[in-house]
């Protein structure tokens, strides 16, 4: 999907940006900037989950080879923690806080995108499989194509709460959705 390269803000080439600042105010600001950067970067590259163990010292945007700086692991975790608890734009996959879902679109935003597609393609009142929604040929041009299944389920849960969908399982445990 990402055709053009992601353009990092100027601060990304500023070495102190990669060190947790001792002053509380500065750190708050720095953390906020990091969160924005993570969200923008993830959206651009369609990254849905960040593994703290894998990104440290390797992957953009936590690593900038041009200035030979990397955000240390504990700072990465702090940034992600802020993303999860303060901005509500993320969720830890497990309790040990290594893998974190990044919600550059929140589940209800995905939900309305999906429902719009369902409505526009006349799929209301029909049964769809989750496979069909995220991997089907017909959704190939949609932004939610190849959305990770857990995120899809979160979005569908939103629609269920709104009374727009019902989730049920087939005999072999595959989830199906009936849109109302």
């Amino acid at each position: 999907m990402a055709t053009s390269a992601f353009e990092c803000p100027a601060i990304h080439s500023f070495p102190p940006f990669f060190t947790q600042q001792p002053t509380a105010d500065t750190w708050n600001k720095q953390r906020q900037l990091w969160c924005e950067l993570v969200l923008a970067h993830s959206q651009h590259h369609r990254v849905f989950i960040i593994d703290a163990d894998e990104v440290v010292g390797k992957a953009a945007p936590f690593h900038n080879p041009a200035i030979r700086r990397s955000l240390p692991r504990e700072t990465v975790v702090l940034v992600l923690e802020h993303l999860v608890s303060a901005l509500k734009c993320g969720e830890w996959e497990n309790k040990d806080r290594t893998r974190c879902w990044v919600f550059w679109r929140k589940p209800d935003e995905w939900a309305s995108l999906i429902y719009k597609w369902i409505f526009d393609t006349g799929r209301t009142n029909t049964v769809c499989t989750t496979f069909e929604i995220i991997h089907g040929d017909e959704s190939a041009d949609e932004s939610f194509h190849e959305l990770p299944e857990p995120l899809l389920m979160r979005a569908l849960d939103v629609l269920v709460k709104q009374g727009k969908a019902q989730i049920f399982n087939s005999s072999d445990g595959n989830a199906g959705v009936k849109f109302i």
Partner: peptide
Amino acid sequence: RAVLELKVQRD
């Protein structure tokens, strides 16, 4: 449910 079974098989 029947439609879902069919669609799952299709997938």
